[in-house]
Every structure is written in C-alpha cells, then in structure tokens.
Amino acid sequence: MNYLAHLYLSDSDDHHRLGNLAGDWIKGRLENHGLPDRVLDGARRHRYVDSASDQHPAMAAARTRLGPDRRRAAGIILDMVNDHFLVRHWDDYADTPLPRFLDDAYGSLERTRALWPTGGERMMERMIRDDWLSSYGDLAIISMALERIAMRMRRDPGLSDTLPLLRREYDTLEAHFHRVMGDLRAQLRPR
C-alpha cells in the first residue's frame, strides 16, 4: 500500500498518522528513534500494513498480472495503483469525503513537522503542497509518478511505460485491490 492507504488505515490522531505515513523512513528498531509512542504505534501499523498486503494472496495474483519483466517493480507499481483505486472508490470505504479527509491528514502532518523523519521531509512537503494524493485518481498521473521514480533509479526495474499495461489489466487489478483493502479494513478498523 502507498501513502493514501497508509493515511486511511491510520487512527485519526496526528502522531499515529505521521508514523503510519512515514514508516518507510523510520528504519531499524523503532524504540531507538526517541519518537512519541503514538508515532511508533503508527510506524508499527505501517509495517503491518506493508507485510499483510505483500503477503495477501490477491497481491500475489496481482503481481503475476504485471508479468515477469516487471517482477522487481511490481511492488512499487501495485502500491501506486492501489492508491489510485482507493481514490476512485473512496466513498465505498470512507464516510468522510476525500477532500475533507485530505485536509485533515495534511493538517496532521503539518502539525507534526518537527518530528518528520530524515529523508522524508522533502517528499512530505511536496505531497502536501502539490496535493499528490487527490491527483492519484488519474491513472496517467500514476504512470507519470512511476516514470519519475524510475528516473531517480540507477536502472529502471520496469517502472517506465506502465500505462498500457495498467489499462489492459485494470479490471483484474481493481478486483485484487478490493480483496486486499477489504481485508485490511476489517482487521484494522481505523479510528
């Protein structure tokens, strides 16, 4: 799962949201970072969500739909595409309208700016400023974001030119998303 899914699957307090979103930058033993307990709880949730979604049978099936030449990139592609599906089906999963949810989530992140982990500051700043998450409803934006990630890598693992593949596999990937998100939502019941 990617940024929007992590925020959605967080509790609604500022510190938990930060930890769940920023979990990728909080490396090693969580207790060694001197962060508030609720940030650490959020980082634990982040790790659980990543692990549970990666191991979910629907995600394994979705990875095979991307083909063997995108095996190394499949996790990144599916994380981004799952955020796309979450935007597209937001009303099926949330009672709060997406614009209000994002305003609240971005506000939470702004209020915890002093705790932003090293390495994630620039990304979180740009995500808030440019409202990345609401733009994820456009599959072409997802494809462009994957292209930008590929440009930052020494060698593209298969992130480029994904739009035709995503369009071809759209319905199947969407069905897999619903299985994974439904299970995660039932297990975690965000507050």
Rank of each mutant, 00 (worst) to 15 (best):
D14K: 10
G28N: 06
G34P: 12
D14G: 09
H16L: 03
V49D: 05
A58M: 09
G42L: 02
L9D: 01
H15M: 13
S10P: 03
A52S: 13
D14P: 08
D37M: 15
I26F: 06
L21Y: 09
G19L: 00
A61Y: 05
P36I: 12
D11M: 08
N32V: 13
V49N: 05
S53G: 13
H6Q: 10
L40K: 04
V49F: 02
A43P: 02
G23N: 09
N32Y: 12
D13P: 08
D54I: 05
H56M: 11
R63G: 05
G19A: 08
A43S: 10
H15P: 06
G23A: 11
Q55S: 13
H46C: 03
A62T: 04
A43G: 07
R17P: 01
A43Y: 00
L35H: 04
L21H: 02
R63H: 07
S53E: 06
R44C: 10
A52Y: 07
V39M: 07
P57M: 08
G42N: 01
S12M: 14
H6N: 11
H46F: 02
W25R: 07
H46T: 03
L21W: 05
G42T: 03
H56E: 13
V49Q: 06
R44S: 11
Y48L: 13
H56K: 09
H6M: 09
R63C: 11
R47D: 07
D41G: 08
S12C: 14
P36K: 13
N20I: 03
L18S: 01
D37Q: 15
D13K: 08
A60Y: 13
H6F: 10
A52Q: 10
P36F: 10
A60G: 14
P36M: 14
V49S: 04
L21V: 06
S10W: 04
G19C: 03
D50S: 09
R44M: 11
G28R: 03
G34V: 10
G42H: 00
Q55A: 13
G34D: 15
A22P: 01
D13W: 06
I26R: 00
H15T: 07
A62S: 04
